[in-house]
Design a binder for these strands. Sequence first.
DNA 1: TTACTAGCATGTAGCCTGGC
DNA 2: GCCAGGCTACATGCTAGTAA
Length: 224
Amino acid sequence: MSDILSDIEDFINNFNSNNDTDFAIDTIRVKFSKQHKLDSLKELGKWSKLKKNSNILNKLKRRLNDDEVTSVYRLETHDIYYYNMQEPPKYRNAMMVIFGIKQYHQAPPPKQLITKILSTLKNISNIDICFDVGIKPNLNKLKDIFDLTQYISKDGIFTDTYYINKTDIPMLKKITIYNKAFKNNLGFDLWRFEAKISIPNYRYLALPLNEFKSITDIAKATND
DNA sequence: TTACTAGCATGTAGCCTGGC
DNA sequence: GCCAGGCTACATGCTAGTAA
């Protein structure tokens, strides 16, 4: 079997070369059956169950509102987790989540480890592809075309995070636009576009990168 | 043949309650 | 407050059947 991660990276890099852009993978998610994979995953390192009130678990649950999370396990100190899902057959399925592959404030999870996990699970369910820009995007242009929702924190504060929850583009489930510099305390201006893209069959890769680029191009237009 | 799915049985962990 | 017991939710082992 070929290397799934390299295949996707090659696909994206090829698109970047032909379109003068700089898309990158930020998050990989893989739904898997624990029944035959868990033993192999445990050989890769120590998985620790996150405590019920841990900050990381609460943060994960905020991001995973659709999936009925029961418990979450973390691979050592990496941003690599799997969480058990309640959907039937109960406790059989889990979702592997590999975060922070494109980061500025900390090292990403080791590529060799990601490759091993993907070759063990032999699948990939969806990925987040990101695109970073040094100035605030033109959100008004996007509002003209999409239903742009601003995220309001629990305290009722309007944040620098915006969602396009419905794109009408096949496989492109959602786009998040947020102030990356503020979020990670970077010390320089940086905004991030993040596209959640489902992958029905990784053997026949057809990522909607042209469509995502059209959206980032609109938002890169000069602010009026 | 191998990989995967699903049902049943059983083990484990966490929470709650009552007695001391 | 502490501990034991009971209950429930969570998790996994075993096995049989199915698909690739």
